[in-house]
Design a protein around this nucleic acid. Structure first.
Lengths: 185, 185
DNA sequence: ACACACATGTAATTGGTTACATGATTTC
DNA sequence: GAAATCATGTAACCAATTACATGTGTGT
């Protein structure tokens, strides 16, 4: 069983919203699952080619062969949907989750409280920005897409993100206070 | 500036606890930062060789050349410490954080509530196990290593993990209830 | 005219896992 | 004497980023 997640990110996006080009797929990824997933063109275009060769997706509009830079729309096939469904049922990979911020914080005594403080500040800022985005998305989602069958699941991932970010922001306040305490003590 | 994080994970571990072999470094990584970082032998051994060639670490005990499978202890050099410190001050990389669980949940309407429910259940189980481990670590840490200069930072990363896991576990209860609602509606 | 968004793709490189190969030491 | 743990390393492969190269369409 193929388990390259890029494959399934693309299939999943095309299952929700067909007739998209590689360019559009990337944008859709950013706008929908961007807070926990990313795809680069270097992954997307070769993967689209491969998926088409495997019959999991098809070109859904005729392409003018003469024009090289023209838009190529893809849609998912029944075979592609089947593959996506099979993958969805497989237990998620409990991969080693690498967090560079935490790694720096863990070793921070080698650099001093000033450095630690600055990293935590940046971390909090990033999380505040992300939280604002997710809350906006939540509002827009409720207004626009509550009729889609995927809607409840989209909202669940959003509420997960909101919860994690709020926890992280509160922790940052506590952590900054703790590190400031080290500067004096 | 080199930014391969494996480099700094190793330097950081050796800064805290010198005279470790590749084998031991891996174990130390698992036991200290394992809940947010991982390293495989395939990364560790070649990296150790490279770091030694660059003078960032040194063999800290004589190695019997005749014996091939003998333990090689490394320690960090002043140059290595400097490199580690420089890296600690660089803003953490805000890399695209990929979460396969959330990706599966996001697309779950293509597979149905049963599949979603099972994934969430597994997610919660995993988080419960992790939380138990972290709470244990917290207790042990307080008893054993509160005198180390890195201790406050270690506790901060732990309390971050505990907070995130508790939030995730509470969310899972909510999410499972929501998905069960979909099965009936 | 210029900038910016649209659009597709490849090549080089990096970073990492996994499987393989080997052997010593300890514990039951 | 078998199994587990200690111990080091390489090779094959996979996934992904980044930089590069090219060109069109739209708006100011």
């Amino acid at each position: 069983m193929e388990r390259n997640p890029t494959t399934y990110a693309i299939l999943g996006i095309l299952a929700i919203h067909p007739n998209q080009s590689g360019y559009e797929i990337r944008k859709t990824v950013q706008q929908s699952v961007g807070f926990f997933w990313g795809e680069s063109y270097g992954q997307i275009y070769p993967t689209l080619k491969r998926l088409a060769a495997e019959g999991l997706i098809v070109l859904s509009a005729p392409v003018d062969v003469k024009e090289k830079t023209r838009r190529k729309e893809y849609s998912i096939t029944p075979a592609g949907k089947k593959r996506l469904q099979a993958w969805l049922a497989v237990p998620f990979r409990d991969d080693p989750p690498r967090d560079e911020f935490l790694l720096k914080l863990f070793f921070a005594s080698d650099a001093g409280p000033g450095v630690a403080l600055e990293q935590i500040r940046r971390f909090q800022e990033k999380n505040r920005r992300m939280l604002a985005m997710l809350l906006e998305l939540q509002k827009l989602g409720l207004a626009r897409s509550s009729h889609y069958p995927g809607f409840p699941y989209w909202m669940l991932t959003l509420s997960y993100g909101v919860g994690q970010l709020k926890t992280a922001i509160a922790w940052s306040d506590m952590a900054m206070a703790a590190v400031k305490g080290l500067e004096w003590g």
